[in-house]
Each structure stands twice: as structure tokens, then as C-alpha cells.
Amino acid sequence: MDFSLLLQDIPTLLVVILGVPVVLAAYIVGGEYLVRRLPDKNRPQVRPWIWVGPALILVAAYLLIPAILTAIQSLESNNVDVLDPGTWGTNFVGFKNFARQFADFPTGGAWVAIRNNVIFWLIFYTIFTLIFGLILAVLFDRVKYEQFVKSLIFMPMAISSVALGLIWDFMYEYQPPGEPQTGTMNALVTTLFHHDPVSWLQDQWPGESFNLLNNLALIGAATWGITGFAMVILSAALKGIPGELLEAARVDGAGEITVFRRVILPLMMPTIVVVGTTLVIFALKAFDVVYVMTSGNYNTDVLAYRMYNQLYLASNSGGASAVAIILLVAVVPVLIFNLRQFRAVEARR
């Protein structure tokens, strides 16, 4: 490895690490100096805007305004400079970009990606993760070495989805029947079930129009990575249930399964809902695993990948914008639900 690169980069890093906070602090101190010059009654009106100003500008520049521009772009043909309001409407194509994405149901346009996102990913990813997370949280809660096993399960959260994709590429490796299997999954399938090896990422079982298997293979890899997240939050909720409640239920004659079903589960429901909605949003935004493992081939496309694909490989910014808007429309109901939850939590504060 060439460590001279490091020596060259360190000064730059130092400038940023020290410079950014210093410039910001100077800005705030300067702002405060100006605020103090104002009449007493105006200070509380001006001061907050000085403090939140830089953040609001960045958020507007990178999230809010671009999102609006993308909405405009999705109604225009490709050769529009969406940043120049003068060109808005000159290449107006109405909903043509969307029409193209929604053409030829069920295999054309964005349909495969939509199906994968809102059926396969949304259902299986969310449910698998919740079930695994809940089982692990409940089981781990009863052993003394809880912290240790928890951090092992949680570890995949720390690594990148690219690495995660590679790890699972190796798990799913396929060798022709008869040859020694190098992938763990196929070794299990051939030795334990005496089944022919499965080409997990290509096999479109049970059929091309409903290729559950390879999608499940991708979802399984993603689930493996995210379960630690669900487990940690659910485990925190589990610990929040007063032990006396469980003891009371046991004294009342409930078995462990009844205690779980009738006491633990209902009390954890609000947390399960929060984790569930977050997972739904993750599922709709899935990208990395698909990008790394299949590039959307064999009918494993998802919206986020399709958008990337339209933008870079097809140079179709109108189509990419339309896909992004479709993605937004899928997320919005969940988002509104989440905001409601958030408000309910805030109201209880």
C-alpha cells in the first residue's frame, strides 16, 4: 500500500476537521454579535434563523429543491436543463415518461421493479426481519451472555452492503451437479436434501412471471444484514416491560407461550410498528444488494436500481425522474404514517 498518499491527505483532513467547526463557530459568534446590536424585542426573532440558517440552506439545496425539480423533470423530455426555469415546459411531454414506465403490464416498463419492491421486498423483507428480530430478542433476553451474542448478530450492520453482497455471493455460489459445491447453501442442499444444486441468483422458480426464488435469495441476504437493527430495538422494548407484569401473569397461571402472546407481544406492539414501518421504507429503497449481486438481472430489478439504470446506462433522465417519483409515491403513505406516529410520540412528551 502506498502510504505517501496518506501523508499527502492528512493536512487536507486536518484543515477540514478543524476548519469547518471554527468557521461555523466564527459565523455563530459573529451573528450573535450582530444580534446583540438589535433592539431587545427583535433578538428572539432573528437569532434562531442565524443558527439554523446554514442547515436549512443545505437541506433545501440538496433535498427539498432537487426533489421538486425532479418532479418537474419527470414531465419533460430528456434534453431539458431542469435548473433553468426558462426551459421549463418547452419539452413538456405530460405523463409520457410515466406512461413508458407503466407500459406492457406485467413484464414491461417498471412493472418488474414495482412488483419486486412493493410485493416481494415489502412483504418478505419486513416480515422475515421482524420475526427473526423478535425471536432473537426474546431468546437472548434469557441468557447471561446476551450482550455477546447480540453484538455478533448486530455486526453485519457495521459493514457495507457491497461487502454484504460479496459475502452472500459466496454463500450462493453454484457449481454444476456432480462437482464439489463451493457455496455453503448448495453444499447444504446437495448433502442434506440430496437435491441438485440451485443457482440461487439466477433460478426464477416457480416461473419467470413470478420468480420468487432469486428475489428471496437477495431478500435473505438483506435480511441477514438488517436483523440486528430490529433485534436491538425490540430488545430495548422488551426490557422496558416491567418484570412484575410477567410475574403476575405467571402467578395467574399463564404458561410461557401465553405470557408471550398475551402480555409481551401486545406491550411491544407500538415498537414493532415503528420498526416495521422503518423496514418498509428500507424495503422500498433497496438498492445496494441488487446492484452488487444481480444488477437487476433475471427479473430482480428494484425501483432504486432501475432509476440508476435509466439515468446512467440508458441516459434517460426523464425516465429516471419518473421512476424516482414512483418510488416517492410508494414511500409517501408510509412516511405519512411515520409522521403521525412521530407526532403522537411528541404529544406524549
Binding site: 439545496a61 427539498l64 426533489a67 440508476y308 433522465s317 424516482a324 408510509v334
Partner: peptide
């Protein structure tokens, strides 16, 4: 809080 969940894909092209 709402922007937390907005897909980043929505912002790439204009930026």
C-alpha cells in the same frame, strides 16, 4: 423528520 425518509434518488439528477 419527513425528509429523513425521502428516497435520495429523488435528488440526484438536479444536483
Amino acid at each position: 423528520v419527513g425528509l429523513l425518509a425521502v428516497p435520495l434518488q429523488l435528488t440526484f439528477i438536479p444536483v
